[in-house]
Design a protein around this nucleic acid. Sequence first.
DNA 1: CGGCAAATACTG
DNA 2: CAGTAT
DNA 3: GCCG
Length: 621
Amino acid sequence: MKKAKLHNGGNIPKSSTGSRSDPRLSNPGKCVGVSKLPEISCTKPKIPSGNSTTASPSGDNFFLRGVIISIIPERVPKARVDLLRKRIGERGGGIVTFHPQGALDETVTHYVVDDSVDAEEALRVFLMKQPDLEALSETLSNVQCLPCKWISGSLMSRTRLDEGGFFLHRQLLDLITRKMTASRKLDCTPPKSAFALFSLAVLATPFACTPKSEPSSMLSVNAGTGGDGSGIKRKWESIAEHASSGYEDSGGAESSDSDEEDSDVDEEFLARVQPGHMPFAAKFVCSYPSSSGRKNVNGHITDQLEKLQNTYKSTGQDFRAMAYGKAIGTVRNAPRITKIEDIKGLRGIGSGIKSKIIEILETGACEKVAAYCMDNEMNKAIELFCGIHGVSSKTALKWASSNLRTLEELPEKVRLNRVQQIGLKHYHDFLERIPRSEVVEIESTVKEAALRLQDGLELITCGSYRRGKPTCGDVDILVTHPDGKSHRNIFAPLLDSLRSSGFITDDLLVADEGSQKKFLGVCLLPNPGAKHRRLDIIVVPYSEFGCALLYFTGSAHFNRSMRSLAHKANMALSHHSLNKNAVRVGKKKVSDGEPLPGMITEKAIFDYLGLKYLEPADRDH
DNA sequence: CGGCAAATACTG
DNA sequence: CAGTAT
DNA sequence: GCCG
């Protein structure tokens, strides 16, 4: 995997002019107007509350404010119901009596059932009030159906526990969805809720109408309010177990008043959280397979959006570019889009991109693309420069701002650092995709050299190659040794060997992070007409192999999602380890937590995070 | 309106 | 330190 | 730009 630069985000300084003229074709991403290159030689919170709740800041005694609860009395001892009602009221929550018959009360935000009630049973109860599955689905997607321990846990911890941490609601929605699709014949009519969408994508046959959701956050963790012990565990469970409904997280609320009377709650939670599977994690792409291989029937749309994405990326508007990336993924995997209704409900497409798609549908193109990406001298130059390894938005903008427009004039007019010189030297080659067959050759070359140095080394080529893509942007080779130590002294010798054979032609970076050693450089196969290829070699200790493999296999988007998931469970995933109990206040981490032992396979990591294991090819989001 | 991944190393 | 890259 |  690779190519995922997202440095600091957002807005750019806003370059000056946007002089236009010359409507010539420029081809972002592809080599442009360059023919001869100069010779160069180089060596070496706000808690968004779900529903109507007002987020409870630390120490809010009325953390149930805005919540209207209806307890379904079946199986819940009468005495308990009474007690709960009382306590709910004390914490600001509303209570509505549940009547088995009659319509559902629209004011209710949370239904609570006995802990022993499963989705099937809950559904039976709801069906008595609303026999129409579709209508029921609609209604339930706007409320929560939770086990009793949600409310008792909330009361005990004096915080409104994250609803996403409980399976029941999701299972219920999922069950309804299945019943609907079963009865309805599997057409492509998108169901209403996000869960339903997700369910369809996964459960229905291979992607009849895959809705593709994306990572992004749910449970936005409150910034500023510190989390404490119980908060951490709670969050962890929330995530690990479940799937989240996009409701908010109570974000390390407690604090002010003497909390921590919790052992009870936490224990109960922890007991059942253990690594299991999380079959319904609607919002995290890392929780379901990418729909690889299906062909894009909306190319005319994604082409335009990609142009905008590229321009935004090279002009430093990274988050905007990322948003486009999500939308593109959604559109690419959607059935053919021919009318406005077709994009209804697709995730990642808001008013901005939606209007552009409509424009494309109506006129065949997007005016903004022509004006902003194609006819904009400045932006064209910026994109051209960003194609150089070692140059990104800041530098490109700087150069373009001083009226530079071609690669040829760079060496004489600006000062290129070593890496940029290499990047420029191989400008064309680096923009070229690498066929798998060639990746195999490169891999063998490295493997051969490595095994000559040390028996038993394991080399795995990661990145898009491992994900099964037909072509790759570069070659990422991970090296380790099962004995846990023989990987140590091979890094430098391996590079020396590959250099002396003429295979490695340039070093972009040789880093020694301690446990892991990393080489980023350039290689060249001894074949006539061969191109220079970007090659990364990373040597890692066996103990970090799982995390490294996972990381270097990507995709970038998939990794983001998975880290985000870990993050919200108060864990931290890096290419070194999966840490537990990582604490952070707002955005900055206060503690890295402790690395979990045993994460030596990708499977172990998926398991621990409660995710279903995905083959590399299924991580291509 | 804030978040959108995290960690580390080189370059100059 | 800012910028770039993985 | 999108989402919550």
